[in-house]
């Protein structure tokens, strides 16, 4: 048990260094969403309530997490491409330890994203500050695991050239299907019903509703959907990773 924990933390430490030493990580995971938060607020918040900070900031937090899929997938795919992982397969490290190592390494970035976007949002519109925002920060770790799990799954299945394309589908889905930029109700009843079963709108609703103290739908509903997709993505990632380790 102790050896397993040491291996997970060793892998996590290495992955954090690899991610933080890539300037593109900061650009896409922090700078770009922050720029969007500030720009869209000042341009649109008087035109549509969708861009008031209490709705925009939670949406940006979850949207920025979609980029975790890209960076988790890229890190894993590059490790595969350079034989780095093949060498580690000869060590005592188990498939789930690899997955935890990749997943945990992105959680500090998630935390930085939430704190940054909420604090800047609160400085622009102080009504954002409150108990709901404080609760939303730890809860955003849960939604981030969804995207991290999807990223690891993509990285396990794809090569370094195709990860970008597949991950951009997830980023686009989070952008278009989450309801963060425009209300989904305008897309028709069937579409809205369909979105209730996908994780993107549920992840955004979860953070938005806790920030704003909204109890309709109850918090547990989007939470259950997000947790189910997260568990499915992580289990699928472990299985895909295991199959890579046991080449036949």
């Amino acid at each position: 048990m102790r050896e397993s924990l040491v291996r997970i933390l060793t892998l996590t430490g290495r992955n954090i260094k690899e991610i933080l030493r890539d300037p593109l990580s900061f650009l896409f995971m922090l700078a770009l969403p922050l720029g969007m938060e500030i720009l869209f607020y000042f341009v649109f918040h008087k035109l549509t309530p969708q861009f008031e900070m209490k709705y925009l900031a939670p949406g940006i937090v979850v949207f920025s997490q979609a980029f975790l899929s890209l960076f988790a997938g890229l890190l894993l795919a590059l490790d595969k491409a350079t034989a780095f992982l093949t060498r580690l397969f000869v060590s005592q490290t188990k498939p789930h330890e690899f997955i935890f190592g990749y997943a945990l390494s992105l959680l500090p970035i998630t935390l930085a994203q939430s704190v940054l976007f909420f604090v800047i949002g609160g400085l622009i519109d102080p009504s954002l500050f409150g108990l709901g925002m404080i609760w939303a920060i730890p809860l955003s770790l849960v939604t981030s695991l969804l995207f991290i799990g999807l990223g690891i799954l993509i990285g396990s299945l794809c090569n370094e050239k195709s990860v970008g394309g597949v991950a951009s589908v997830i980023i686009m889905c989070q952008s278009v299907l989450s309801g963060m930029w425009f209300p989904l109700e305008g897309m028709g009843k069937e579409i809205v019903t369909f979105m209730k079963y996908l994780p993107f709108k549920n992840a955004t609703d979860l953070i938005r509703n806790i920030v704003n103290g909204i109890g309709d739908p109850p918090l547990w509903k989007p939470l259950i959907v997000v947790l189910l997709y997260t568990a499915a993505a992580l289990i699928a990632a472990i299985l895909a990773f295991r199959s890579k380790m046991r080449a036949k």
Partner: peptide
């Protein structure tokens, strides 16, 4: 695995470390 190690044909290092 406890008694072996391998150096592959390809260079296998952590790039940014």
């Amino acid at each position: 695995k406890q008694v072996i190690d391998i150096s592959m044909q390809e260079t296998a290092v952590a790039r940014k470390l």
